Amino acid sequence: MFKMTGSASLLFTTLLLLIHSTSAMTIPFRRTPDSSAPSVSPIKITLNFSPEGMSKRDDLAPAIDQNFPDPALLQDSDGKWVSFATSGGGYHIQVATADDAFGPWTVLDQDALPEDGWTSGSNFWAPDVRILDDGTYIMYFSGQVSGSGHCIGVARSETSIGPYTMDDEPIICHQDEGGAIDPAGFRDEATGRRYVVYKIDGNRLGSDAPTPIRLQRVSAVDGSTLIGTPQTIMNRIDSEDGPLVEAPNLVQLADGRYLLFFSSHMYTDSAYDVKYAVADSITGTYVRGASPLLSTPELGLDGPGGGTSNEDASVLVFHGWCRSGVRCMYVLGYSIQ
Rank of each mutant, 00 (worst) to 15 (best):
V218N: 00
A61F: 02
I336C: 05
K44Y: 02
F68E: 14
V251D: 03
M4E: 12
V145W: 09
G143I: 08
V145Q: 13
E189N: 10
S122M: 04
T136N: 12
E246D: 00
F141A: 10
F49N: 00
P28W: 06
S83C: 14
N67P: 01
D76I: 02
D58R: 11
V331H: 09
R323H: 10
T106Q: 15
L260K: 10
L250H: 07
D222E: 01
T268R: 15
D78V: 05
T229H: 05
F318L: 03
I161D: 05
V82K: 14
V315L: 08
I181V: 03
F261T: 12
F124G: 07
S87C: 03
T232G: 03
G192H: 11
S264F: 12
T5I: 13
A63H: 05
A277K: 07
D269P: 02
D111E: 08
D222V: 06
G117N: 13
T191E: 08
L60W: 03
M25T: 11
W125A: 03
A112Q: 09
P69I: 07
A101Y: 03
Y330W: 00
D116E: 14
Y286I: 04
A290D: 06
L294I: 09
I19A: 14
G6Q: 03
D168I: 00
G103V: 12
Y286L: 15
S270Q: 07
L73K: 12
S148R: 08
M139G: 10
P230R: 01
G333Q: 12
S55K: 12
L301I: 06
Q75M: 13
Y91S: 06
L113E: 12
I227V: 13
S335I: 08
